[in-house]
Amino acid sequence: MVPLLLVMLSVIGWPFIDTVRLSFTDARLVGAGGDFVGAANYQRIFASTAFWRAFFVTTEFAVVSVFVEVVLGVLVALLLYQNFRGRNILRALLILPWALPTVVNALLWRLIYNPEYGALNAMLVQTGLLDDYRSWLGDPNSALVALIIADAWKNFPLVALISLAALHAVPHDIKAAAVVDGANALSRFRYVILPYLVGPLMVALILRTIEAFKVFDIIWVMTRGGPANSTRTLSILVYQEAFSFQRAGSGASLALIVTLAVTMLAVAYAALIRKSAGARF
């Protein structure tokens, strides 16, 4: 444990503490170190509409994308749990979107959403579902949704695979007993299967929510936060503040606020897990 702790301390612990220190200064990225400014950075951030807007965009992105991934993932797991020909091939395919590098995924969807030559517009118009080509990433009403779809497509396989493993952990006799008792499919899912899914799903939910809250790559490549900052998440905002505008101090404060939000989310979910686990056993 000691070497790992040492490495983590030096490569994570120290930068983190330094970030805390920076967050109380007006340091610039390049050039002279900053002066101590107390909580001024934090005050400015909490008073800024840009921050709150990014906060809500990030929350919306995280909540909706994870929700879609979980629902889709569980449905796909239930499907792949059934017996049919080609099931194993489908299971193998499931790994593909997950293995695709995030940046390539973002590029791929940017090309699909292209307003003039994109496949989505072409498909919808040629099948008559849409009258005219649309600007998916240029319209604040659709840009975030478009990003969420791209993100969910890549990440639902993870939830599906975890759920599938959990399904296989359900003892056969319990399922058989439920069938004998004449429970219909829905109540069988609700009372027999679901309890086995909740734990693993919660873990997946936490992991994905933390990831989604930190989102940077896919947005950077697809919209860079536009149009009109409607997809500017907190990580993008931190990048802009600390690196584009070179305000390392307030960038650090902002990053710490993001960290705090992620931690609180994770703790809340963990409490939920403990509660649901306690209720079950």
Binding site: M1, L4, L5, M8, V11, I12, W14, P15, F16, D18, T19, L22, L29, I210, F213, K214, F216, L234, S235, V238, Y239, A242, F243, A248, G251, A252, L254, A255, L256, V258, T259, V262, T263, A266
Partner: peptide
């Protein structure tokens, strides 16, 4: 008994890269 240390390490997963980027860059 030293399990806590692993949790500490895993806890770092919650740190967004942006929270470490500036000092890492300077370092």
């Amino acid at each position: 008994a030293v399990g806590w240390s692993l949790w500490l390490v895993i806890g770092t997963y919650m740190l967004p890269p942006v929270a470490l980027a500036v000092p890492l860059y300077m370092g």
